Simulated assay, not measured.
Amino acid sequence: MKTAAERMREQLRTPRVMTSISLRVPERVIEDLKEIAPMLGFSGYQSLMKAYISQGLRKDLEKLEGSNVAALTESLRKQGVPDEKISAAIAEAGLKTA
């Protein structure tokens, strides 16, 4: 299994395939994103949203890196257990992911 840093370096080397999604977001959140995006150096609110998502994802990947929960999660996925059930079980058990 690659580390989060290795995956990040690999992602930076290869072109990223993008896909379109629909996401329902409160209007006020969009207004706030549009207001602060230029202040943070972003060309628009969608770029800022992508940055927030990437930042949160990297944080969670780093927390999970090397943990027993990560190994168990991967094993359960391979056995066909849906992510929603895995997440619920981790939360119910009060397991730490770091």
Results as ranks from 00 to 15, higher is better:
residue 1 M to H: 11
residue 1 M to V: 13
residue 4 A to S: 11
residue 4 A to Q: 09
residue 4 A to F: 09
residue 7 R to V: 01
residue 7 R to C: 01
residue 8 M to L: 14
residue 8 M to P: 00
residue 10 E to N: 06
residue 11 Q to R: 15
residue 12 L to I: 09
residue 12 L to K: 11
residue 12 L to N: 08
residue 14 T to M: 12
residue 14 T to Q: 15
residue 15 P to D: 05
residue 15 P to G: 01
residue 17 V to T: 08
residue 18 M to E: 11
residue 19 T to Q: 13
residue 21 I to D: 01
residue 21 I to V: 14
residue 23 L to V: 06
residue 23 L to E: 03
residue 23 L to H: 04
residue 23 L to M: 06
residue 24 R to L: 07
residue 25 V to C: 01
residue 27 E to H: 08
residue 27 E to L: 09
residue 27 E to S: 08
residue 28 R to Q: 13
residue 29 V to M: 09
residue 29 V to Y: 10
residue 31 E to P: 00
residue 31 E to M: 10
residue 31 E to L: 07
residue 31 E to G: 01
residue 32 D to K: 14
residue 32 D to W: 10
residue 32 D to T: 13
residue 33 L to Q: 01
residue 34 K to G: 03
residue 34 K to C: 04
residue 36 I to G: 00
residue 37 A to G: 00
residue 37 A to S: 07
residue 37 A to D: 01
residue 39 M to T: 13
residue 39 M to P: 00
residue 40 L to T: 04
residue 42 F to E: 00
residue 42 F to I: 02
residue 42 F to W: 05
residue 43 S to R: 15
residue 43 S to E: 12
residue 43 S to I: 08
residue 44 G to Y: 05
residue 45 Y to T: 02
residue 47 S to T: 07
residue 48 L to I: 01
residue 48 L to H: 00
residue 49 M to F: 13
residue 50 K to Y: 12
residue 50 K to R: 14
residue 50 K to I: 13
residue 50 K to V: 13
residue 51 A to M: 11
residue 52 Y to E: 07
residue 52 Y to I: 15
residue 53 I to Y: 02
residue 54 S to C: 03
residue 54 S to T: 06
residue 55 Q to H: 14
residue 55 Q to Y: 14
residue 55 Q to E: 11
residue 58 R to H: 07
residue 58 R to Y: 07
residue 60 D to V: 15
residue 61 L to V: 05
residue 62 E to M: 12
residue 62 E to Y: 10
residue 65 E to A: 03
residue 65 E to H: 06
residue 65 E to V: 01
residue 66 G to W: 10
residue 66 G to P: 02
residue 67 S to M: 05
residue 67 S to V: 05
residue 68 N to C: 08
residue 68 N to K: 15
residue 68 N to H: 14
residue 69 V to W: 06
residue 69 V to P: 01
residue 70 A to R: 15
residue 70 A to W: 15
residue 71 A to N: 11
residue 72 L to Y: 11
residue 72 L to Q: 13
residue 75 S to H: 15
residue 75 S to G: 11
residue 77 R to G: 01
residue 78 K to M: 10
residue 78 K to A: 10
residue 79 Q to N: 06
residue 80 G to W: 14
residue 81 V to D: 03
residue 81 V to Q: 03
residue 82 P to C: 03
residue 83 D to H: 09
residue 83 D to Y: 12
residue 85 K to M: 13
residue 85 K to C: 04
residue 87 S to R: 15
residue 87 S to W: 13
residue 87 S to D: 11
residue 87 S to F: 14
residue 87 S to N: 12
residue 88 A to G: 09
residue 88 A to S: 09
residue 88 A to K: 13
residue 89 A to Y: 09
residue 89 A to L: 12
residue 90 I to D: 02
residue 90 I to E: 04
residue 91 A to E: 15
residue 92 E to I: 09
residue 94 G to N: 10
residue 94 G to W: 14
residue 95 L to V: 07
residue 95 L to H: 07
residue 97 T to L: 14
residue 97 T to H: 12
